[in-house]
């Protein structure tokens, strides 16, 4: 203990205290504050960034799910539209077909009608013509038959024969 006390120097103690306190106050202002602040700031930033990354990841997940849903919906819609279009097309085709058929039938019917009318007209004309020819021929035949007495008698007989047969 005596040795300790004899070794102790008040001057040295004074200077060491002064120097240490000077260092303490200088470092407090110019070093520890900025260093600890920077370290804290960085730690907070890292924590925030990690949190943000997690959040973003979750957001991306929901977005992905939404996208998948949208895609599914779109596909269903497209399928429905194609189906509709097909049905409409078939319908239109059917309609066109039936209209065409109807029209055709109508045309055929009117054609038949006009043909029949023409035919009737032609037949009546032919009948008139034929009647004319028959009269002409009958006139000529009658003239030949009535030229002699023998022949008038033959005709008369023949006509009588026909009447009997009827």
């Amino acid at each position: 203990m005596d040795k300790l006390l004899s070794e102790f120097s008040i001057g040295l103690f004074f200077w060491q205290t002064v120097l240490f306190l000077a260092l303490l106050f200088l470092l407090r202002k110019y070093a520890w504050k900025p260093i600890l602040n920077a370290v804290n700031e960085r730690e907070e930033k890292i924590a925030d960034s990690l949190e943000l990354a997690d959040k973003t990841k979750a957001e991306i997940e929901t977005l992905k799910a939404q996208n998948a849903d949208l895609l599914k919906e779109a596909r269903a819609e497209r399928d429905a539209m194609i189906k509709d279009a097909k049905a409409t097309a078939t319908q239109m085709k059917e309609d066109a077909k039936s209209i065409a058929k109807e029209e055709g039938n109508k045309m055929i019917a009117s054609a038949k009608k006009s043909i029949n009318a023409e035919k009737a007209a032609a037949i009546s004309e032919l009948k008139t013509e034929v009647a004319g020819f028959a009269l002409d021929i009958a006139e000529k035949v009658v003239r030949v038959e009535l030229a002699s007495d023998a022949k008038q008698k033959e005709l008369a007989e023949k006509l009588v024969e026909d009447i009997n047969l009827n």
Partner: peptide, 22 residues
């Protein structure tokens, strides 16, 4: 003394190096 002188040198050195760090 030598100890005070060395302490002074180290105080300057420590301050310098941590100021640079900051």
């Amino acid at each position: 003394t030598r100890n005070v002188f060395v302490t002074l040198l180290m105080v300057i050195f420590i301050f310098f190096i941590f100021r640079k760090t900051a």
